[in-house]
Design a protein around this nucleic acid. Structure first.
Lengths: 207, 207
DNA sequence: ACATATTTTAAACATTTGTTTAAAATGTTT
DNA sequence: AAACATTTTAAACAAATGTTTAAAATATGT
């Protein structure tokens, strides 16, 4: 999203985002940000008042970016099966674009959950509204295994996202290039779609 | 492993380990460590020469702790099915004991894979020796789905470990206590065992 | 008991940290 | 062009950082 003309404020925020994603809050210095933005040190505080305020702003952006797609899919008027497949596909694309995102979010939340997630329960409720009832219906109809949303979500997200959380480790372990890793991740995604759907959904018995 | 009498060196290392696990390398100060160990600031450098050297030592310990159990299980003369189930059970116990471990390792490796994983390929080879052939046999015999170790491992580890990587987020989201989280994690583990085995292994056709 | 080596301490060290200042440069309005 | 507001700059700030020092305390060997 690099515009032709970008305000200094935007330039700093963009740069800060990329540095925070790479090094985390504690590992990032004000001078790192200034250098990445090619701007004077003082400007970060001029526009954002403090490193912490800038971080909060970026964290909030990234976290809602992370959630938004998921909710949008869940609100669609499609079947559970389609929702889950779309979720995995969307999630995969997101992580391909921003491979550090999930690890970043997890690390920072681990550091200070209270401060960073003051309104998380709203997300939980939206998940329930858009998914729980639909799942229950499927289960009652005998078309799906008995599983709760609380387990379903980490089951899906976990298997897929973990590959990206450990991206650098995997690349190191298999001497893989960026392209090779992406191919690997794509295959893994397809494997997960196959496993999840085959495990969750009970094939209709032909009488 | 708190002994009755613990040398200063051990006390510092123990304390440093717990602080590093919680706050990561960049988020930990020399004074944090000294305070956690109830020791003088200068002793860290007296025994370990630098914060970085102490960190490397602890990282190496934790990483081999993380790998050791896995390899030990894979070397056992048991079936693939048994190996995978034991792996999940062991892994679960490990994370119950040290919930921050995986996120810590992933974060630090992400930060600097070259420095921290100089000899990772050895682990990869051991994985192959102890597992690849056995899997191939099963696949040829038609008792197992066609899947490579490269995909199998993250598939298993991911779904299970992700719950602990996002522990604080999950606890916050569901207002869960430590005990409630552990119950949840245990149920999740069982779900994963069920899913993995049912998906991977092809039931013998009764003729 | 003495001499020696090891461990612990308080204090200081030079850098790096996030942040502020006050002046300079630039943009905007009339 | 003059007056004003906004943006950018170099320099400095206090506080925090990892590390070192040199003396004190303790342990060890003879």
């Amino acid at each position: 999203m690099t515009c032709i003309t970008q305000s200094s404020e935007e330039k700093i925020k963009e740069a800060a985002k990329s540095v925070f994603l790479k090094k985390g809050y504690a590992g990032t210095t004000a001078r790192d940000i200034a250098e990445a933005a090619s701007m004077n040190i003082a400007l970060t505080n001029y526009y954002f008042r403090s490193k912490e305020k800038l971080f909060f702003e970026i964290f909030r952006d990234l976290f809602s970016y992370y959630c938004k797609n998921t909710l949008k899919i869940f609100e669609k008027p499609i079947s559970i099966r389609e929702k889950l497949i779309e979720l995995i596909e969307e999630d995969f694309q997101m992580m391909k674009k921003e491979p550090s995102l999930v690890l970043f979010l997890m690390t920072e939340i681990h550091r200070d959950p209270e401060r960073l997630l003051p309104e998380l329960s709203r997300f939980k409720e939206l998940l329930h509204v858009t998914l729980s009832n639909q799942i229950e219906e499927e289960i009652i109809k005998g078309r799906m295994r008995n599983i709760s949303v609380e387990h379903l979500m980490p089951l899906i997200m976990g298997s897929l996202q973990f590959v990206f959380v450990g991206k650098n480790m995997n690349m190191k372990m298999y001497n893989a290039s960026e392209d090779e890793f992406n191919t690997f991740a794509e295959n893994h995604k397809n494997l997960i779609i196959s496993m999840i759907t085959e495990y969750l959904f009970i094939p209709e018995t032909v009488n």
